[in-house]
């Protein structure tokens, strides 16, 4: 069975695409055959983050409409053997996506032997976002420690619990995971930022990881390399931990405690 995972958040700009790219890469690196689908019809971005924008020929809507088959549309990732990207269409509007069409694509991916399908949701709670979560078995809710993001995450959790197929058919509910991104332990320590514990307490969803705020994320997207591949980066390590926890491995939380810089570091600078 292919496991369908939606990466969602409600609010835009919190790190959904960055997370989709890194988690799908992480699962592929672990040997699972993985597909990552961009559901942001009209505003495709996943291809840029994955660094395959120049190889896009066909897209999700082409496959849904039968203008191309899945094999033609899937782009093989340049970093991982087992990873394939299905880009979103740029030209058509969101109404081009139908529930039947998405279901057909997911079924076909399962027939092709995929272990995981990651659905990168668009922002908002409109059709595109609902379509991305409709067939989910698990959901990664990406949240920034900031008021509007937390509130929007709660809204999207409500939609997961009412509009997903699992909810409508009364099956086991979608397994929810909370991921806090752009986290600054220093600001939390100073009482300027909600702690990951606060966010978890408010949303009441099990935590799968905390990704620290870092300049590396921009560096990664500049190059079209998913952040998980970066060398010597806290963000990459944090994403690897998230993938491990997703696979039920025990990993303690890292990068959540603030260490005051020592006297040497303060004198001589450093990163």
């Amino acid at each position: 069975m292919a496991r369908v995972i939606v990466v969602t958040s409600g609010k835009g700009g919190v790190g959904k695409t960055t997370t989709s790219a890194s988690i799908s890469s992480g699962l592929a690196l672990r040997g699972f055959k993985t597909a990552v689908i961009d559901f942001d019809v009209g505003l495709r971005n996943l291809d840029l983050i994955m660094g395959c924008e120049r190889r896009v020929v066909y897209d999700l809507i082409n496959v849904v409409n039968g203008e191309a088959n899945l094999n033609q549309a899937l782009i093989k990732d340049k970093h991982c053997e087992n990873l394939f990207i299905l880009p979103a269409s740029q030209t058509r509007d969101k109404d081009a996506l139908s529930e039947e069409g998405v279901e057909k694509v997911l079924k076909e991916l399962e027939h092709m032997g995929f272990d995981y399908v990651i659905c990168d949701s668009p922002a908002g709670i409109e059709k595109g976002a609902v379509m991305a979560l409709t067939f989910a078995d698990e959901a990664i809710v990406v949240t920034n420690p900031e008021v509007s993001s937390v509130r929007d995450s709660d809204r999207i959790l409500g939609i997961l619990q009412s509009k997903s197929r699992r909810a409508i058919e009364g099956r086991d509910p979608v397994k929810e995971h909370l991921m806090v991104t752009r986290y600054s332990p220093k600001r939390v320590e100073e009482g300027e930022m909600l702690s990951y514990k606060d966010v978890q307490e408010l949303l009441r969803v099990p935590l799968i990881g905390v990704i620290p705020e870092s300049d590396d994320v921009l560096q990664a997207s500049n190059q079209g390399t998913p952040a998980i591949h970066l060398k010597d980066s806290d963000v990459a390590t944090a994403y690897q931990d998230v993938v491990a926890r997703f696979l039920d491995e025990d990993r303690p939380l890292r990068f959540v405690a603030y260490e005051k810089p020592g006297i040497l570091k303060r004198l001589f600078g450093g990163k």
């Binding site: 937390v150 409500g158 939390v188 009482g191 300027e192 702690s195 408010l202």
Partner: peptide, 25 residues
């Protein structure tokens, strides 16, 4: 020492989320 805005945020969120859960869901 500055006022801690994070605790203000948490308090506001817990109120609004509780309210929206009963109405939206």
């Amino acid at each position: 020492s500055k006022p801690k805005t994070a605790s203000v945020a948490k308090e506001r969120l817990s109120l609004i989320i509780a309210h929206e859960r009963t109405t939206n869901r």
